[in-house]
């Protein structure tokens, strides 16, 4: 048993978990083509969830702020992107890949801008007065989520909004008897690029160094002469923008979105952040991929269990590692 544990650590430790899940699923599913389709869907979903969750993890890690309103940015990102895409509907329908690509770019950019501005407002007005008080943070950010939902209802209405997609992201590639949806590959690639950029910033720049140090010990960073509260506003804005970007991608993935989207995603996002370990980007990615993969496999194997599977996963992981898979060192 001990040897097995040592071998597990040597070959990547907890990083292996998504691979293990995929292998077990391969055996259970039996049909390779279905398995490939589900795996790609799971990875794409995982990456989009990662976008939504990464900011939350850093926000909690750096300032100990529990932001239950985080998923409001997911909603806003989704709806703003949907509106921008609908506005450029003619470009999306046309033959020009450039124009439909531009429309997509503008939609995601608009979501990011809304996330940045909304994040700034949210931090200054709602979160700042309740630093260091978890109970009030939960109450006020939950309240803000409800308000955000109502704002979306007022602007976009209660009926589900359909989200047009650029033509070049429609359809699927057929490889042998496996069909690979183009949008899923795109979502995965974009998520991976964002992860790489975040990892680079956190590990190679002075701001990133300050964030990592601040997550570990905020007081000491301040005693070294840095205003963590000012840094936090920036992290909050970027985190909210990432959530909005995740929402925009999610909208394109679902193609039909409703105002309840934010509240639905909030649970998943919190599960991911908790099993990944608070304050660490690597942990969040790991948690997101696990949740994405498991959700798709279970949805295929035992559809009734799909909702419960994430909760069971969280419980199992917390019993094994109470502070998550890869928490930031505290």
């Amino acid at each position: 048993m001990k040897n097995l544990g040592a071998m597990f650590e040597r070959f990547g430790g907890v990083n292996l978990l998504p691979v293990l899940v995929a292998i077990v699923a391969f055996v259970l599913i039996g049909a390779p083509s279905s398995w490939v389709t589900l795996t790609i869907a799971g990875l794409a979903m995982g990456m989009m969830i990662f976008l939504m969750a990464s900011g939350l993890s850093l926000i909690f890690g750096l300032m100990d702020v529990l932001n239950f309103g985080h998923s409001a940015f997911v909603s806003f990102g989704a709806f703003v992107a949907a509106s921008v895409l609908a506005f450029f509907g003619a470009w999306l329908g046309g033959d020009s890949v450039f124009l439909s690509g531009l429309a997509l770019f503008l939609a995601i950019a608009a979501a990011i801008v809304v996330g940045l501005l909304g994040g700034w407002f949210f931090e200054r007005v709602i979160v700042k007065p309740v630093y260091k008080d978890h109970l009030r943070q939960i109450l006020i950010t939950m309240g803000a989520l409800i308000v955000a939902e109502q704002i979306i209802l007022a602007i976009w209405g209660g009926t589900p909004t359909s989200v047009p997609r650029p033509a070049f992201l429609e359809g699927a590639w057929i490889v042998g008897d496996v069909s690979v949806e183009v949008y899923r590959v795109f979502a995965f690639a974009l998520g991976l690029a964002v992860y790489a950029a975040l990892a680079l910033i956190l590990n190679r720049t002075r701001i990133g160094l300050l964030i990592r140090a601040g997550v570990e010990n905020r007081e000491m960073v301040e005693a070294l002469g840095f205003r963590v509260d000012r840094l936090f506003v920036a992290v909050f804005m970027v985190g909210s923008a990432l959530a909005a970007m995740g929402g925009a991608m999610w909208a394109g993935y679902q193609t039909l979105i409703s105002p309840a989207l934010g509240a639905e995603m909030m649970i998943v996002v919190f599960i991911v952040v908790i099993i990944g370990g608070l304050g660490s980007i690597e942990g969040t990615l790991l948690g997101a991929l696990l949740v994405g993969l498991l959700g798709n496999y279970v949805g295929f194997l035992a559809p009734k269990m799909a909702l419960a599977s994430n909760m069971i996963l969280m419980m199992a992981i917390l019993m094994w590692r109470p502070s998550g898979l890869r928490p930031a060192i505290k």
Binding site: R206, L209, L210, R212, A213, E216, N217, M220, V221, L224, F226, A328, I329
Partner: peptide, 13 residues
Amino acid sequence: FGGLTVEENLILA
């Protein structure tokens, strides 16, 4: 800062 290297700890100071 345990997650940072010795060099990174010092450069932050």
